[in-house]
Write a protein that binds this DNA or RNA. Structure first.
Lengths: 212, 212
DNA sequence: ACCTGAACACCGTTCAAGT
DNA sequence: ACCTGAACACCGTTCAAGT
């Protein structure tokens, strides 16, 4: 018997081997040895299936226990989110890109709002901060998964080639920065982004609270 | 006679009426009254066509004249970028999402690096800042175009409905912030994001420079 | 240099009929 | 309640043949 769960599982299988672009009702049906049309009994078309995949990914995000320290707690959530998104790199763009309205997506939001509230932010500013920080996180992760492992810091030949291309532009600032632009260390970039975002949050925190 | 230019133009037509999802070689061919296979003489398949569209959008970004003031100049670029991305809202996700390697994409990068360099940042930090700020910008705009006009601040009924859904979650911090979470004013969110990012940049700027 | 006919191997989805 | 046959209206792309 078919079920929503097994269908989502089969979709992960397709995504892991053929990418999100490889997902089709027919491909998923093939994995399950079932007619693609049967899927419609459990899932709301292809869009609904992809939403279900994104939700499955988010729902297993385990939120770290809060310590009471603003930056420690926000940082922990950011890293947990990244770990989850990268657990199926090919599926990451789904979580990052879909407008999720399900309950699944609300737990992390609750966690972040609670931390900000405890740090003394008022509700309105908390929502703004939540949105900017999340956008920065998503933008950073999106670049990371788009760049792919090809863009790693290892591949010396690739770096040399990209440096050459950048220098060929003859734009002075680009040329001067070429060797840095050609390199991309995902871990370091993420760390830099998170620390910058945390700085910005702390910088706006009301005084006399527990953030330091 | 067909040309790359007319093909890209026809694709914009398709995108503006049917969204990115409506783009197909056949649909573009139909607009031009031409066999879809003919497109392959001017464009590298569908992927290449979408790249060309994104590049066309970026290439008409006109960069504001620098004034020499760090925040003024970065802010001007951010707003110019947004205006361009939103000029064809349905096409925005292409510019925001594609890994562009063309010359077109380098001009804005040159501009930003030059501003950061003039503010006294060293090359390595400039590249980091460029990447974080761009990621934040992209994340913010992606949300904006995904949310769509539906999520405007006008629609009182929609806001009420979303507030109710959020409150139904019974998560305390989400409930407390429900009325703010249900609202989304794209202009204000963008402004907040930009000012936060600029604060973060200024905060890291070497002293004794021209940023103030 | 450019266009297209023939051809191939794909898609998502509805709906009525079966169990 | 679930599965599927028949059917429809789509896709992207290659390659050889035409002008």
């Amino acid at each position: 018997m078919l079920s929503r769960e097994t269908i989502v599982g089969a979709t992960f299988q397709v995504i892991d081997t053929a990418g999100v672009g490889g997902v089709s009702m027919r491909a998923v049906g093939r994995v399950l040895g079932v007619d693609p049309k049967s899927l419609y009994n459990h899932v709301d078309g292809k869009e609904g299936l992809l939403d279900a995949v994104a939700e499955a990914l988010l729902s297993t995000l385990d939120l770290p226990e809060p310590t009471g320290d603003l930056t420690t707690d926000l940082r922990a959530i950011a890293y947990a989110f990244r770990a989850r998104a990268l657990s199926h790199p090919e599926a990451a763009s789904l979580v990052l890109t879909r407008q999720l309205s399900s309950f699944e997506g609300l737990a992390p939001i609750e966690a972040v709002l609670r931390i900000l509230r405890d740090a003394g932010f008022d509700v309105e500013e908390s929502v703004h901060l939540l949105r900017v920080v999340l956008a920065a996180l998503i933008g950073t992760l999106l670049r990371e998964v788009n760049a792919g492992p090809t863009y790693g810091s290892e591949d010396a030949a690739g770096i040399a080639e990209r440096t050459a291309v950048l220098e060929a532009s003859e734009l002075p600032a680009v040329t001067a920065a070429a060797s840095h632009l050609a390199r991309f260390d995902a871990d370091k970039e993420f760390e830099y982004a998170v620390e910058l975002a945390l700085d910005a949050v702390v910088h706006r925190a009301p005084k006399g609270q527990n953030q330091r």
